[in-house]
Amino acid sequence: MSDIAQVAAPAAPTVSFQQRWWPLAERAIGYGLLIFAALATITPFLWMVSTSFKTDAETFQFPPNFIPNSLVWQNYIDAIAGPDTGRQLINSLVFALGSTVSNMLFCALAGYALARMQFKGKNLIFALVVGLLMVPAQSQIVPVFLIVQRIPFAGGNDWLGNGGTGLLNTYWGMILPTAATPFGIFMMRQFFSRIPIEYEESARLDGAKTFTIFWRILLPLARPAMAVLGVLSFQSAWNDFIWPLILTSQREMATLQIGLQLLQSGPDARWNVVMAMATLITLPVIIVFLFAQRYVIDGAVTSGVKG
């Protein structure tokens, strides 16, 4: 009896001490690490914004200021007032919106066919789409460039695609290779597969045509997946650099991303103006994302991975 009391008495407080404090300490360490990681992640953004408000002299100061002495809004005016900025904005918008709309339409159509229709060669086509997911797209830029250049009857080409410049330096050339992606088709197929078949069957009994069923019933149901596809397509075209760089040789066809690179590498580049431009280019995507965050974070991966 006294043995048990002796053993139990010192043990009890130790256990409760651990139970009470260890989870708290664990949580404090966890929070500390998370805050550190968040600061490390966000510092380049803060640095970008902070520099965009500095005076020329302040950008070369050593050691540098993290908080600018004054807010120089002129940097933003200088960035926007560049001779080609307006034109570059239009080019970026046409490219990004064209790519987004065509991706949403074509991937939804193809995804629906692969999810819901019976036809010869279905498995083969689906296997092809999945296989193309693995093809390294960026390493294909050379042949894609040559193909776009040789589209028959475009840009002074003859019917064999010789003689002219094809779709080089055109919006069509910019959008065409990005107008549908294996990922988009795959994602839409996964989504359509999960919509209950009853929706279609009742419409079919009413005599609706396949396209009407797709357009009037399934597409509205697929709104979350379409939002994800739209945001991802917009982001990837808006941020794309290599494809517009290779496709366009004329100054009037350059996009904002190319403009930023030219601004930065130019002979009289000013860090504060470059950072103002970088801030302006980054903002639209972040704003689109913040509005669609729910859809994108929950939907992008659920449709992509869970299958």
Partner: peptide, 10 residues
């Protein structure tokens, strides 16, 4: 979400 070029420049 940041474009490659914006990230690279920063």
């Amino acid at each position: 979400l940041t474009s490659l070029i914006a990230a690279a420049v920063v």
